[in-house]
C-alpha cells in the first residue's frame, strides 16, 4: 500500500473510493489522490492511510455533500472532495 499521494501512481477507477460507501458503512483510508490544497487539508484533518472512517450522513438528492467520521471528528465533504479518498 502506497502512502504517497501522487498523481503518477493514481490507481484506476476500479479502486474503491469513499464515495462508493453508503450511510453507516465503515472502511479504512488507503490513500488520498492528488497533491493540492484540498488533498493537503484532507490529510491534515486525518485522512491518512489506515485511518478508520464511517459515513455519517449524505444529502439528498445526489449524496452531496457527505458527512464523514474520521479519527473522532466529523467533517462535511463535497462529493468531489470525498472522491479523492481511496479506501482499502
Amino acid at each position: 500500500m502506497s502512502a504517497d499521494p501522487s498523481r503518477a501512481d493514481a490507481p484506476p477507477d476500479s479502486h474503491r473510493r469513499l464515495t462508493m460507501l453508503a450511510v453507516g458503512d465503515r472502511a479504512r483510508v488507503a490513500l488520498v489522490l492528488e497533491d493540492d490544497p484540498i488533498s493537503r487539508r484532507l490529510i491534515e484533518v486525518g485522512f491518512v492511510p489506515g485511518a478508520a472512517i464511517e459515513v455519517i450522513a449524505s444529502m439528498w438528492p445526489a449524496a452531496d455533500p457527505l458527512a464523514i467520521r474520521v479519527g473522532g471528528s466529523t467533517f462535511a465533504l463535497r462529493r468531489h472532495e470525498a472522491e479523492r479518498i481511496v479506501i482499502a
Partner: peptide, 11 residues
C-alpha cells in the same frame, strides 16, 4: 467552475 471547497468540521 466547480471546484469549491466545503470540508467543514461538524463539532
Amino acid at each position: 467552475q466547480s471546484n469549491h471547497l466545503l470540508m467543514l468540521e461538524l463539532p
